[in-house]
Design a protein around this nucleic acid. Structure first.
Lengths: 308, 308
DNA sequence: TTGTATGCGTTATCAC
DNA sequence: GTGATAACGCATACAA
């Protein structure tokens, strides 16, 4: 591997001059520039990226903490982040936690060790306080509603959408409301907020009618069994694929009214209601907050898409 | 930011000794090790990742070249790569090309400049020959059938699945066969192979019955119009979402028999046939080939899943 | 316009 | 066990 030193030695110029050529700086004689470029070409020389990063202190790399990929919600946001990062010449490194707190901590350590210029946390495994000390090391942006803290975030309006969904179900005469939720409420403030809203707006709602740990489409199968047994006639799910799976289990008998999330193609095809969260925009804004080092807290508008 | 030098200075030991402590090397007095660790803790010292990479020459980072994310096929393979990379302590950096040849070349340059330890190319934009010179810089693995070359790859058996699909459609009495394909055949050998098989096994097939540039679900709308107009009664699509969209357009009138790909939830829900390619495994094997620097060429088995 | 010298933060070699 | 010192490859004040 040829280095900048080799090029300098061979061309007879100094490392500095070669460096100037590499970076397209002015104040280099055109003749010499051409000669240096020729040698670089001949030796198939490429400036070492790592060395450049070490020297500049910038990696042009952003880490994205996410439970896992291949999941509509996370992928939607990730997609937005990537589009924006790409436009700004940043690279995106995936940091999947699978909700493992220790693993997430390792990523934070790596960030503190200058592994990334910034971090976007789509969904965290640890408590938000855990992140505070690391936020002094560099910009960290969250994609979760963290009202009450001072962290920059851009989040979807889950409370708003749940409110609208419940009101709609009430209008439709739903008697017993069911919910599917992801991780236990101890960990997810989204779950906490959703439950609070349900209790507030739907007095008959009982926490016993929540189907927990509902993450992937397949979880919809047992969720449906759960709801059938309890005579649920209206369900707010945490994902279109889950919603689809639930509906599919009701092939005979009347299905409850089910509301999905993410407004995926499947909700359109199976014709059930869903919520458009603008996940792509969420990701884009998150990256913008990182890059401009803004401290904003943004909640995106949602649209409840009724299909009946 | 505290550096190893600071720790050395404060503790009064040499940089070497501190480095030994960092890396858990032997031959360090336990007393001193403890003292050094204490100071590191106190100063919140973390060894700089970039410096470590420069010094070691390894990044523990692998780049994945892919047209874009949020697409079932690519995400499926990506997921497999990530699982395996994760298990082997590697990080994954996404390199989206949007089929831009020049952009892909930039990624290759970055790879040559030691930006990544290896590259996995899910789908390439450039000709395979373009990659040859870069393969001398480090391991590159492809996820596309590249029989006839010497490059390591792990691919899905598209020819096999198309063969099986066509035979099935023939059995079902299909008279006029339609195809949806992605990029023009000039660029994609998958397209070339698919067409060849169609002509071979389905004599009545005409290239005029191919709907091109069919990438995203929405493309299924005009694909359906295209097929309706031409009286197509059997379609092999290049994706379940596209297949679903096509079927959806036939709400009144008899729909053609449609075969999807990827065996997504939606094919199960809408009950149309599809092909299981084991994309996850494809990604995993690709990473394995990278890590073990194997030159293997693997074609994965498929399963045609008939739903009628 | 060009070059010298130094820094970036680690790891590795080798002598003590 | 320990510590100078030289890589690693590049960027950049500052001097010339």
């Amino acid at each position: 591997m040829a280095t900048i030193r080799d090029i300098a030695k061979i061309t007879g110029f100094s490392i500095t001059t070669v460096s100037r050529v590499i970076n397209g700086h002015p104040y280099v004689d055109e003749q010499k520039r051409a000669a240096i470029l020729a040698v670089m070409e001949e030796l198939d020389y490429k400036p070492n990226k790592i060395a450049q990063k070490l020297s500049s202190g910038k990696t042009y790399n952003i880490g994205v903490i996410v439970p896992f990929v291949n999941h509509a919600f996370f992928d939607g946001i990730l997609n937005g982040i990537m589009e924006e990062a790409f436009a700004k010449k940043y690279k995106v490194t995936l940091l999947p936690t699978n909700f493992d707190r220790k693993l997430e901590l390792e990523y934070l350590e790596e960030f503190a060790a200058k592994g990334f210029d910034g971090l976007i946390v789509i969904t965290r495994a640890n408590h938000i306080e855990t992140f505070y000390p690391y936020m002094e090391k560099g910009p960290i942006v969250f994609c979760e509603n963290s009202t009450g803290t001072a962290v920059p975030f851009v989040a979807i309006d889950l409370v708003g959408s749940v409110t609208a969904s419940i009101n709609y179900l009430k209008e439709q005469g739903v008697k017993r409301l069911g919910l599917t939720l992801g991780r236990s409420k101890r960990l997810s403030c989204n779950s906490v907020n959703t439950i609070a809203k349900a209790k507030e707006l739907f007095p008959a709602f009982s926490e016993a009618d929540i189907y927990w740990d509902c993450i992937k489409a397949q979880d919809g199968i047992s969720a449906a069994a759960f709801f059938k047994e309890r005579g649920i006639d209206g369900v707010i799910t945490n994902g279109d694929e889950i919603a689809a799976m639930i509906l599919n289990q009701y092939s005979h008998g009347t299905a409850p009214i089910v509301i999905g999330q993410e407004n995926l193609l499947i909700s359109q095809m199976l014709h059930f209601s869903s919520v458009e969260f603008h996940l792509n925009q969420c990701g884009k804004e998150a990256f913008r907050l990182f890059q401009e080092r803004k401290q904003e807290q943004i909640i995106l508008p949602y649209e409840l898409i009724i299909r009946e």
